[in-house]
C-alpha cells in the first residue's frame, strides 16, 4: 500500500505506514480475542442483524419460492394498506389502551411495594416477604395463566368459594366475559412482577442517606412529608429511567401472556399488534404485510425510546444513554 502512494504523500508516508504497521501488530497480537468474539458475532449477524436486513420484504410481495431477490418490489403498498385498514386502527387501539393501563397500574405497583418494604424494620421478616414475592417472576406464563384459569373458571376456586360462602347461584364467567379480560391481564402482570420490580427501587432507597431522614425528623416532618420530600425525590432518577425503557415497549403488550389468554370471546379486544403479526404472518403466511406491521412497530418503539430519553435529559434527568 505504501509503495503505491503518490510522491506528494511521501512526507507523511512513514508515519502513516508505521501507524498502520503498529495497528496490524496489535490486531495480530489480539488474534485470539477475535477468535473468542467470533461465535457471538456470528450469532448476532445471523439471528439479529440479518433479519433486520430481511425486513426489506416489507417492500416486496415476498414469496418463499422466489426468495428475497426474485420477489416483486411493491414499494409502500403494504404500508398504505396498513394505514388504511380499519382493523389495524382497532388493533393499535387495543395495544395502546392495554399499554396505558399497564403503565398506570402495573408500573407503579413495585414502587409502592418497595416503599412499604422499606418501612419494615424487622430484617428477617422483610427477607422472608421478599423471597416469597420474588418467586412468581421465575414462573412461565403458561403456569401463571394456568393457575388463573384453575382459580377463575366456572367450577374453579373463586366461584366455588362464592357459592359456598355467599350462596351465589350463578357462577361468574371471568374467563369468557370480555369485561374481565384487561383487568385480568393487569392483575397477572402485577402478581408475577410486583416483587421482582422492587429490587431496583429498594437499591435506590438504600442509597438515600439516613442523615436526610434524621434531619427531617428533627425538623418535625411526619412520615408522609418525609416520603414526599426525601424518598420520592431519591427515587426520581430510577423511575424516569424505567419509564423511558417502558415507553419504548408501548407497542409490545405481553405477547406470550395474551396469546394464552385469548379465546373466541375476547379476541376482538385481545387482538394486539403482536397477535396481529402472528395471525397475518404465521397463520396466513402473509409474510410481507406482517413484516410491514413489525417494521412499523419497531420504528415507533425506537423513536419513542430515543424521544423519551431526550425529553428526560431536557428536564435535567440523567437518561439511559
Amino acid at each position: 500500500m505504501t509503495e503505491l502512494s503518490p510522491p506528494a504523500a511521501m512526507a507523511e508516508a512513514p508515519s502513516t505506514a508505521s501507524r498502520w504497521r503498529k495497528a496490524r501488530r496489535k490486531a495480530w497480537r489480539d488474534r485470539f480475542l477475535y477468535l473468542l468474539v467470533l461465535p457471538g458475532l456470528a450469532y448476532f449477524i445471523v439471528y439479529r442483524i440479518a433479519p433486520m436486513l430481511g425486513m426489506v420484504i416489507a417492500f416486496q410481495d415476498y414469496s418463499p419460492f422466489l426468495g428475497f431477490t426474485g420477489s416483486e418490489w411493491v414499494g409502500f403498498k403494504h404500508f398504505a394498506t396498513l394505514f388504511d385498514s380499519a382493523e389495524v386502527v382497532r388493533v393499535l387501539w387495543n395495544t395502546l389502551y392495554l399499554s396505558f393501563l399497564q403503565i398506570l397500574f402495573s408500573f407503579p405497583a413495585p414502587i409502592l411495594l418497595a416503599l412499604l418494604l422499606n418501612e419494615v424494620r424487622h430484617q428477617a421478616f422483610k427477607r422472608l416477604i421478599q423471597s416469597i414475592v420474588y418467586l412468581p417472576h421465575f414462573l412461565s406464563w403458561v403456569i401463571v395463566v394456568g393457575i388463573s384459569m384453575i382459580f377463575l373458571r366456572t367450577h374453579g376456586f373463586i366461584n366455588g368459594f362464592l357459592h359456598t360462602a355467599f350462596g351465589m347461584e350463578k357462577p361468574i364467567d371471568f374467563l369468557i366475559d370480555p369485561v374481565f379480560f384487561r383487568p385480568l391481564l393487569i392483575l397477572q402482570v402485577i402478581w408475577k412482577e410486583i416483587g421482582w420490580g422492587t429490587i431496583i427501587f429498594l437499591a435506590a432507597l438504600a442509597g438515600i442517606g439516613p442523615e436526610l431522614y434524621e434531619a427531617a425528623i428533627v425538623d418535625g416532618a411526619g412520615r408522609w412529608r418525609r416520603m414526599w420530600h426525601i424518598t420520592l425525590p431519591g427515587l426520581r432518577t430510577t423511575i424516569v429511567i424505567l419509564l423511558i425503557l417502558r415507553l419504548g415497549q408501548v407497542l409490545d403488550s405481553g405477547f406470550e401472556q395474551i396469546f394464552l389468554m385469548l379465546n373466541s370471546f375476547n379476541s376482538s379486544i385481545g387482538n394486539v399488534l403482536d397477535i396481529y403479526v402472528y395471525t397475518k404472518g404465521i397463520m396466513q403466511s402473509d409474510y410481507s404485510f406482517a413484516t410491514a406491521v413489525g417494521l412499523f412497530k419497531g420504528v415507533v418503539g425506537l423513536i419513542l425510546v430515543l424521544g423519551a430519553n431526550r425529553l428526560a435529559k431536557r428536564f435535567g434527568e440523567e437518561g439511559v444513554y
Binding site: 495497528a23 496489535k26 490486531a27 489480539d30 480475542l33 477475535y34 468474539v37 458475532l41 448476532f44 445471523v46 439471528y47 439479529r48 442483524i49 440479518a50 433479519p51 433486520m52 430481511g54 425486513m55 420484504i57 418463499p64 419504548g248 403482536d274 403479526v277 402472528y278 404472518g281 404465521i282 409474510y287 406482517a290 413484516t291 413489525g294 417494521l295 412497530k297 419497531g298 420504528v299 418503539g301 425506537l302 425510546v305
Partner: peptide
C-alpha cells in the same frame, strides 16, 4: 480490540430494535 466498540454498539442497538417475529422466523 479494534472494532470492539462497533460490535458493542451493534449489541446495544439490537436491544433497542429487533427485526420482529416474521423475519426471524424466516431466518
Amino acid at each position: 480490540i479494534y472494532g470492539g466498540r462497533a460490535i458493542t454498539f451493534m449489541v446495544l442497538f439490537t436491544m433497542l430494535f429487533s427485526a420482529g417475529m416474521i423475519p426471524t422466523y424466516l431466518m
